[in-house]
Design a binder for these strands. Structure first.
Length: 579
RNA sequence: GCGCCCGUAGCUCAGCUGGACAGAGCAUCGGAUUUCUAAUCCGAGGGUCCCAGGUUCGAGUCCUGGCGGGCGCACCA
């Protein structure tokens, strides 16, 4: 959807230049404005914006370079502050430097921390299902992905004017809780649940699976416990389950706090337990269920050839994961009537979500397309796939701690007098971990490597934060020295075009990232901006120049810092003023 | 076996709805600090864009078929 009011379009800095170019080209080519495709030249020296003439060659029956030359000549006089020149088959446009500087910087400084925000969403509700850890299991680096990607998508959509609802759908139900209760009954004394709940529970879980094979009574005890749990009776099993849940949620909250992630709703699968009957009835009432091999299923082979059926009820009558997810989804629809419902869940569950959607289709529900599985690549350890049962996991808490310690060590070496070093080390360390996870396209698989996570140089979160800190330092010193306040000489920012063009593209980047639910577009953008900023920084001195020059450069620094901070905030990182 | 996803420099990745000589970071080598934070910057080397066909004026980008890797495939979640 495109904002209808022209003023909304003009609020995007690059649109301000692209719009007249598009209009002018449309008039001279006969193309509808929407089809005039403006792109960015490969080589910045060629220009700021470009229009390829290949597509016109056929209709005009002329060679692209000839068309480009004619168009450039025709358009040249019509564009105020924009130079048009033909280079081969392209018309390249170069924005007058002073105009570019003034318009981009003024807009950023005016909008401040709302820079790039839009009204595209029009207040429509987007429900985002993210994180969704399992009770009694450690938050591993695997859960980090869903949490961090989901939270970034939420911030992107918030900025675009959607009303977002982040839901943490806690895995607090299922037969594994029978196992845990049985394990606690048997060996609970051997661990200190209160002191270190997650590690203790993991130890019990692993031990259960180790001893289960030789001791069949264990499996039986687990089944008995789960049956009691499911019965809803307020007995000792339920009490243990409640305790597990509380202990785990307490641990998870520590992590969420460090990551700066909040949820509008935290709700366990157990919440939907009383609704499972009506959920099954609701699907059955459409007449699409059948009994197969004793189980109640929805056949999905007509939706897609070879798609396995969705199981609503096992042959023993109990429900499954899919049943609970259907219940939760119906509930969400009734509660929010969402515009989109995004499930930020790993690639290993693609079939599951295709099946959920297929059931909705078979039910004839028109809102089925609003449900999207925003999947991401799997995280593997060098020694293989992570496995909770085998105890082969990397604890997220440990990753964050090590990153923080590493950041602190670097601060002590490079900036020993820094005030609040431990807080900043936390911000930088956590930032490194989060940024690393958002760096690549979300569908790519990742192999977890300590070296990479603990790297603070090059394309990393700390690099971006450091760029921001250096800019903040200039602003701090300028204020202390009483510099600035003169009339800026915008024409003096000629060599900052790369920085300005990057900053100017942010609103468009945000929109694209929102449409694709792809935080890495923001990451890539902010890294590119920092590269430009750092290159400019080493070649130009801000303070102590002619007042008009210093003022122009200060404005550029201010706008750059604002834009970088904005990008970091979207990704869930802080923008330290010192580090 | 079937389905989905991925395959770009030694490694990790960008490459915008197909468009101008394929770009970064890491690693290697060589440089830059009397001046705003060197967690930085500049330079060098390094690529049959997995392979083979096809569509197109034009393919890393689209289609088909291979090869390699990941994930999944009814009573776990």
């Amino acid at each position: 959807m495109i904002p209808s009011a022209p003023t909304a379009i003009l609020r995007l800095p690059m649109e301000q230049f692209e719009a007249p170019i598009r209009r002018s080209l449309a008039a001279h080519t006969g193309l509808p404005e929407a089809e005039v495709r403006i792109e960015v030249p490969r080589d910045a020296a060629l220009g700021d914006l470009a229009f390829p003439c290949f597509a016109l060659a056929k209709t005009l029956r002329k060679a692209p370079p000839a068309i480009a030359a004619e168009l450039a000549a025709a358009v040249e006089g019509e564009l105020e502050g924009i130079d048009a020149a033909a280079t081969g088959p392209y018309v390249n446009f170069t924005i007058e430097r002073a105009l570019l500087a003034r318009s981009v910087i003024e807009q950023v400084l005016e909008e401040g921390e709302r820079y790039g925000d839009g009204t595209l969403g029009g207040g429509e509700t987007v429900v985002i299902d993210l994180s969704s850890p399992n009770i009694a299991k450690p938050m591993s680096v695997g859960h980090l992905r869903s949490t961090v990607i989901g939270a970034a998508i939420q911030r992107i959509l918030d900025a675009l004017g959607y009303r977002t609802v982040a839901i943490n759908h806690i895995g607090d139900w299922g037969s594994q809780f029978g196992k845990l209760v049985a394990a606690i009954d048997r060996w609970g004394e051997s661990v200190d649940l209160e002191a270190d709940p997650i590690r203790s529970l993991l130890a019990l879980y692993v031990r259960f699976h180790e001893e289960e094979e030789e001791d069949p009574s264990l499996a039986e005890a687990a089944r008995t416990s789960f049956r009691e749990l499911e019965s809803g009776v307020e007995g000792p099993v339920r009490a243990t389950w409640r305790r597990l849940t509380e202990l785990s949620l307490g641990e998870f909250d520590k992590i969420y706090k460090r990551l700066g992630v909040t949820f509008q709703l935290v709700r366990g699968e157990a919440y939907f337990e009383p609704m499972l009957e009506e959920t099954v009835d609701r699907i059955a009432s459409v007449g699409i269920t059948e009994v197969s091999e004793g189980a109640l299923i929805v056949d999905l082979s007509e939706i897609a050839e070879g798609m396995p059926p969705c199981l609503l009820r096992k042959s023993d009558g109990t429900t499954l994961y899919a049943t609970r997810d259907m219940a939760a989804l119906f509930h969400r629809w009734e509660e929010y009537a969402f515009h989109r419902c995004l499930y930020v869940v790993g690639a290993d569950q693609k079939l599951h979500f295709r099946q959920l959607k297929a059931v909705l289709q078979r039910m004839g529900l028109e809102w089925e397309p609003r449900v999207e599985h925003v999947w991401f690549g799997m995280l593997r350890l060098p020694e293989g796939k992570m496995s909770t049962r085998k105890g082969r996991v990397v604890f997220l808490e440990e990753v964050l701690d090590r990153a923080r310690d590493e950041a602190l060590a670097i601060i002590e070496e490079k900036n020993p007098d820094l005030a609040g070093a431990s807080e900043i080390a936390e911000q930088v360390g956590v930032g490194a971990v989060v940024f690393n996870d958002l760096k690549r396209e979300r569908i790519k698989d990742i192999e977890f490597e300590w070296d990479e996570v603990l790297s603070f140089e090059g394309e990393t979160g700390p690099y971006v934060q450091y760029t921001h800190a250096r800019l903040a330092s200039i602003l701090r010193r300028a204020e202390a020295a009483g510099e600035g306040g003169a009339d800026p000489d915008w024409g003096a920012l000629e060599e900052a075009a790369g920085v300005l063009l990057r900053i100017g593209r942010f609103p468009a980047v945000l929109r694209s990232a929102g449409a694709h639910a792809e935080p890495s577009e923001v990451t890539t953008w902010v890294l590119g901006l920092c590269r430009e900023v750092n290159a400019w920084y080493t070649r130009h001195r801000v303070l102590g120049q002619e007042p008009a020059l210093t003022e122009a450069r200060l404005a550029l620094v201010r706008a750059s810092a604002t834009a970088i901070a904005r990008g970091l905030a979207i990704l869930g990182l802080t923008a330290p003023r010192e580090m």
